[in-house]
Nucleic acid binder design. Structure first.
Length: 239
DNA sequence: GCGACAG
DNA sequence: ATCTTGTCGC
């Protein structure tokens, strides 16, 4: 594919999001059982155009690491709230293409439907790959909501400012910590995306797939891992 | 005009 | 996103 948005202006990017939005699908006949879930992450030095990207694949619902894809990619499109996809998706598409066994669902670091134009990075990536995706963001970008109870697994709906449309959830993934923001990116419903993410919660605020992606891409940037696609050896059964 | 603003 | 010391709470 070799995607590159470096020459786009924000005005053009916005028009593209409005066009993409019309092509989104959320209720794809979804009787398929989920056996694997992936998470993506990007790492880089603020003063460099080199992006380090990863997509890690875990078994579901056991959440054991099965494989990971590591790539490096040059990007000049700047970060701007509302346009994250244009900066990070090209790197992720490159990581996606070298995966030999595609996962059933992909969790992106950022928003999905919970976006001013319903086109967060999870929707952007999901549309281009025709993959089921979920947006899981560490902070809020858009919408209003009431704070969920401080107890782990509690959640509340996030709504569109003017229409009151339900567009995502604030989910408490750990007692007494800030919630994360969940919304479908592509191919899944709001309810289904929340249900899946609840099952990805471990003992930290950041859900397990995303935590692993962050750890692995950091090792990659530090030179501890090499670019490419690698399937991890299954843990031997002892008896 | 003012404040907010994923990573 | 990344850097980075100390501090607070479980």
């Amino acid at each position: 594919m070799d995607l590159n948005y470096d020459e786009l202006t924000f005005v053009e990017a916005k028009l593209m999001q409005e066009e993409f939005r019309k092509q989104l699908k959320f209720d794809i006949p979804n009787s398929k059982v989920i056996n694997s879930i992936a998470a993506t992450d990007i790492s880089y030095n603020p003063n460099s155009t080199t992006m380090y990207g990863t997509i890690v694949i875990l078994s579901y619902p056991e959440l054991r690491l099965k494989a990971y894809s590591l790539v490096t990619c040059e990007t000049n499109f700047p970060y701007k709230a509302g346009y994250l996809g244009f900066r990070e998706v090209p790197t992720l598409i490159k990581a996606w293409e070298q995966i030999e066994n595609k996962p059933d669902v992909v969790v992106l670091d950022g928003q999905g439907y919970l976006h001013p134009r319903r086109m967060g990075i999870a929707s952007h990536f999901g549309l281009l790959t025709a993959q089921a995706t979920i947006g899981c963001a560490k902070s809020s970008l858009y919408g209003f909501y009431e704070e969920p109870s401080i107890i782990k697994y509690s959640f509340s709906k996030v709504f569109e400012h003017h229409t009151n449309e339900h567009i995502g959830y604030a989910l408490r993934t750990k007692n007494k910590t800030k919630p994360v923001y969940i919304s479908p990116g592509y191919g899944l419903s709001l309810v289904k995306s929340l249900e899946i993410m609840k099952k990805c919660i471990g003992n930290h605020r950041i859900p397990e797939p995303t935590r692993l992606a962050h750890e692995i891409v950091n090792d990659f940037r530090m030179g501890k891992l090499q670019a490419g696609y690698k399937e991890v050896n299954p843990t031997p059964v002892l008896f």
